[in-house]
Amino acid sequence: MSKSAYHHGDLKATLLAAAADQVANDGVDSISLRALAQRVGVSHAAPAHHFGNRQGLFTELAIEGYGLLEQELHSAAGNFREMAVAYIRFMLQHPGHFDVMFRTDLLAADDERLIAAREGSGRELRTGVTELDNPVADSRATQLAAWSLVHGFAALWRAGALTQSELGAENPEELARYMVAAVDLR
């Protein structure tokens, strides 16, 4: 976007969208506030005005990502299998956010808005896990196992590890459905 292309609107949202796109395509190491400003066509001080620094930018991107994840998980309405697919769908639709959200080394971990956003998506994820509760197993262990299953799959897919694997498939949502079908819901 050239300087003449950006006129009015929500500059913060424009910067976040450009950052998410760049992270998705080029990785987190490709991001600098100066390059982001150039990409959007604004002064090099504009991103610093909105985010302070690179960590502030990534924290805002993670906050936005957790909100988007919460919405996606809410659409699954407490069904573990659908929630797992919703988690995968989120990763596919928002790869730049996904790549940043779980990288605590990039984020201001004590940011109250980040903590609240993370907790909100976590609550939604747990609603699907209640279906898996086993009276013999510890509920926290069940929650951790379920999150590890879907996040691990999403991370493997995002990293490209499943494309060359005999375990992989063309359609990640279909593969996720196949994977979670193996989970015993009795």
Rank of each mutant, 00 (worst) to 15 (best):
M1V: 07
S2P: 13
S4P: 01
S4C: 00
L15P: 08
L15A: 06
L16T: 10
A17L: 05
A17S: 12
A19W: 08
A19M: 08
D21H: 14
D21K: 15
V23Q: 13
N25V: 08
G27A: 02
D29I: 00
D29H: 07
S30L: 02
S32I: 01
S32K: 07
R34E: 09
A35F: 02
L36M: 08
A37F: 05
A37R: 05
R39Q: 14
R39E: 01
R39W: 00
V40Y: 08
V40S: 09
V40A: 04
G41K: 05
V42Q: 06
S43I: 00
H44T: 11
A45M: 12
A48D: 00
H49W: 09
H50K: 07
H50S: 08
N53K: 11
R54T: 13
Q55P: 13
F58P: 14
T59H: 07
T59R: 08
E60Y: 08
E60N: 15
A62W: 09
A62M: 09
I63E: 01
G65V: 06
G67K: 02
G67C: 05
L69K: 13
L69I: 01
E70C: 14
E70F: 03
L73F: 08
L73Q: 09
L73V: 03
H74F: 04
H74M: 06
G78A: 04
N79I: 03
F80M: 05
F80I: 05
E82P: 10
E82Q: 15
M83K: 13
A84W: 04
V85S: 08
A86F: 02
Y87H: 15
R89Q: 12
M91F: 07
M91L: 10
Q93S: 13
H94G: 01
H94D: 00
G96M: 07
H97T: 07
H97N: 15
F98R: 06
T104S: 12
L106S: 10
A108W: 01
D111Y: 02
E112G: 15
E112L: 15
E112Q: 15
R113Q: 13
I115T: 10
G122C: 03
R123A: 12
R123N: 10
E124H: 11
E124V: 02
L125E: 01
R126W: 01
R126D: 09
G128E: 00
G128D: 03
V129H: 10
V129Q: 13
V129R: 05
T130E: 09
T130I: 03
L132W: 07
D133S: 14
P135Q: 04
P135H: 10
V136R: 14
D138L: 08
R140A: 10
T142F: 02
Q143Y: 09
Q143K: 13
A146E: 00
L149I: 03
G152R: 01
G152D: 01
F153D: 07
F153G: 11
A154I: 08
A155Y: 08
A155I: 02
A155H: 12
W157Q: 09
R158F: 03
R158T: 13
A159I: 01
G160V: 06
A161D: 02
T163G: 09
Q164K: 06
Q164Y: 03
G168N: 06
A169F: 04
E170K: 15
N171W: 06
N171M: 05
P172S: 09
E174F: 15
L175K: 14
A176E: 00
M179R: 04
M179Y: 03
V180M: 04
V180Y: 05
A181K: 14
V183Q: 02
R186W: 01
